[in-house]
Amino acid sequence: MHVRCVRAGLKGWGGVGAMAVVCALALAFVLLLPTARSSGDGSTGTGGPGFATATHAKDTTCEGPEKQTLAPSGADGPTITAIKNRQGEKRKLIVGVDLNSYRWGYRDPNRADAELEGFDIDLVRRIAQDILGDPEAVQFKAIPTNQRIPAIQDGRVDMVVRTMTITCDRADKVAFSAPYFKTGQTVLAPKSSRISGYNDTLADKKVCTAAGSTAYLKLKKDRDTGAMPASVDIIPPVPNQLDCLVRLQLGEADAVVNDGALAASQAAQDPTVGLKGKAFTTEYYGVAMNKKADDLVRRVNQILVEYRANGWQASYDRWLSATLGQDASASKPPAPQYLRTS
């Protein structure tokens, strides 16, 4: 009897002991899991999904992407007919633009109305005038740099006129018009800075670029291939190139890599920063449209033929001569070539 009691007691204690062990294990799990999970999150914290895919996209090498466009034509096709068939208030061209590019596409905060203005906006009005017969028949949509291609692919906009460089990668996803502006990547830094251009002086410096921009892709590639020092610190890309000027002024970046045309716009807003060195690439801006909208591409090319002859120079003088110089020859697009046939 006594023995049995002891045994039962032991059994009871065994159960308690087992439960204590289970509790301790559970507690350990609860305590350890959050740290494990948070470290997992931390590793992917800085890189967003948006530009991660951009960097891993295949590096298409094609000859002169700015020449891969369709021959001009003024004929209406299905895309243009659909735009023209929009009814009433909706009979407008839907265009993706930027609100933050000084003298390209921006809203002067001191204007009583909320009209957008700039070099890109002039071109948009010209296209709307030609297709819909009214330069005001435009619905502007603000598009962040890395949303330009998805916005076209999803059909949220008819076209993007937003200082968009024609590249081979992008030409795979959207259709470009003939070039309407020539520029190149440059470095922007405080005038007092020792940075002298796109070279070794950027070593150990914090460099700001816009997410999904050609500047970001080029700098990242050059750093990975060793063309630029490995110590160049590319800070997390910002949604808009103008956000780089903010980071520069706040001391969160030492330099900005950007299209020369936009860098000049930034310098125009702050007299203490300036362009450093010469442009180290040659790039062309084009109007981007949907891959399937052949008639629209041809029509825009037709409009550009006329615009280059009449309108382009006036718009340049009005918006850009103050920042890019009286002489427009460095910015003039080359004579267009139409090598794309389908």
């Binding site: 933050n100 000084y102 809203r107 905060p109 956000d243 702050d270």
Partner: peptide
Amino acid sequence: RQGFPVGGA
């Protein structure tokens, strides 16, 4: 006030 879009940024 100066009319620069960097204000919006």
